[in-house]
């Protein structure tokens, strides 16, 4: 499936998607409420067949948080990047994709730990690296500051 066909596929599920380049790959910026529908399409459409999620992470831009998914189709040797833009930084939440790609389970727990993004319907939404009693905020956010354990060198 060419880039144009994937773009049509995404626009059908997520109106208002913006397309751009993300490094060597093509990317789409979508609104979080359409995420699950887009992901299901990309996974299940036989022509797209993105069966491998090789990276999932968050990026904090101070006014919004991007959840970035790197997808690969092994069959077609094709990659595509989906960015879901969360404008709510106080209580950010998005639908999990761990039932489509199981590997997302750990990546989402990591994102929850460090960015505070809550993944709805996740089977095990707990902290993964930090201690359970951690109350000092979300370390990988840009406005995080810890005067005692200096993280900013």
């Amino acid at each position: 499936m060419s880039n144009e066909e994937i773009q049509i596929l995404i626009t059908e599920a997520a109106p208002g998607a913006v397309f751009e380049k993300s490094g060597p790959y093509n990317a789409a910026v979508i609104q979080p409420e359409f995420l699950y529908a887009v992901m299901l399409k990309l996974r299940n459409e036989p022509e797209a067949d993105f069966d491998y999620l090789f990276c999932e992470t968050c990026v904090d831009f101070l006014t919004y948080i991007d959840v970035v998914y790197h997808l690969e189709s092994r069959k077609y040797k094709n990659q595509f990047v989906i960015k879901a833009r969360l404008t709510d930084r106080v209580n950010p939440s998005i639908r999990t994709v761990s039932d489509i790609w199981r590997t997302a389970e750990y990546h989402e727990r990591e994102a929850f730990d460090f960015f505070g993004v809550k993944f709805e319907h996740h089977p095990d939404m707990r902290r993964i690296f930090l201690e359970d009693e951690w109350m000092k905020g979300y370390p990988l956010r840009k406005d995080y500051d810890d005067p005692i354990n200096i993280v900013s060198l």
Partner: peptide
Amino acid sequence: KAPKGDYYTR
């Protein structure tokens, strides 16, 4: 200085 944007290597 890297230009503004995303990069990915494997």
